[in-house]
């Protein structure tokens, strides 16, 4: 028996919106400590990792670890049938080939349930080494979304350079070029708008804007985002969800000229 109750459907809806355009099918690994998901896009250029801790749920019970293979598009269609403030209970009996979605309105006067067929997904998990990053930047997630969207008007890739002057995002395209520079915030008036830059070493790498735009679909999950860069490692873009867990993305760099 597996059972997990989300206090609000909205959180699960936001998570799905942030993942479903990168990954079609994924295994939700449910263990005593919580739910995790790790999946790459078809091109193996990006990877999503999700952690939802058991203690972040209203109710969480796993008798035996379960791997729920789910088509995210189907799950997203079902989740659209939930009101944002409905509670969502996912449950699966041992040996069952479906997972049940139970939606309950806040005053318990409406209940609906959907059963989704589970899939056998042959997924390969990757060993992600604990990297020492050359630079770490924390900024408002809306700011990152804006930069990525603005620069996408001029080209396909962004060069991110971290130096003493700050962090610079540069795009070059057939019509011209553009850049945005962010500097470490000095005032602490509005900590939620602050930009923090920790540079251990200057670093510069290029990334496909197409993927960064998809990652920024997670901006509604978290007011702040962390991006971490190393010379010889994929970019890490991390959205923390308070005490519940996180949604992280890794992106392989573009190399050469």
């Amino acid at each position: 028996m597996f059972e997990a109750r989300f206090p609000e459907a909205l959180l699960l809806k936001k998570i799905l919106e942030s993942v479903k355009d990168l990954v079609q099918d994924a295994n939700f690994e449910c263990t005593e400590s919580g739910i995790t998901l790790q999946a790459m896009d078809n091109a193996h250029v990006s990877l999503v990792t999700l952690l939802l801790r058991g203690e972040g749920f209203d109710l969480y019970r796993v008798d035996k670890p379960e791997s729920l293979g789910i088509n995210l598009n189907s799950m997203s269609k079902i989740m659209r049938c939930a009101a944002n403030n409905d509670t969502v209970t996912l449950d699966k009996l041992e040996g069952a080939d479906t997972v049940r979605f139970l939606f309950e309105s806040p005053n318990a006067d409406r209940m609906s349930e959907f059963h989704l067929k589970l899939m056998d997904i042959d997924s390969e998990t990757l060993e992600i080494p604990e990297s020492m990053y050359h630079a770490e930047i924390e900024l408002p997630s809306a700011e990152l979304r804006r930069i990525v969207s603005d620069l996408s008007t001029m080209g396909d890739s962004v060069r991110i350079s971290v130096s003493k002057e700050g962090v610079r995002f540069t795009v070059r395209g057939d019509e011209g070029s553009g850049s945005v520079i962010l500097r470490q915030s000095t005032g602490v008036d509005k900590p939620e708008e602050a930009i923090h830059i920790v540079m251990n070493e200057p670093v510069e790498q290029s990334f496909a804007l197409k993927y960064l735009n998809l990652f920024c679909k997670a901006a509604p999950l978290s007011a702040r985002v962390q991006i971490k860069l190393s010379k010889d490692a994929p970019l890490l873009v991390n959205f923390s969800m308070n005490n519940i867990g996180y949604l992280s993305y890794y992106l392989a760099p573009k190399i050469g000229d």
């Binding site: 091109a43 390969e124 990757l126 994929p234 573009k254 050469g256």
Partner: peptide, 14 residues
């Protein structure tokens, strides 16, 4: 031109 790398070149398979 730039070449897109893949993650499998950086992360080991489990």
């Amino acid at each position: 031109a730039q070449k897109q790398t893949t993650l499998t070149g950086y992360f080991g398979r489990n």
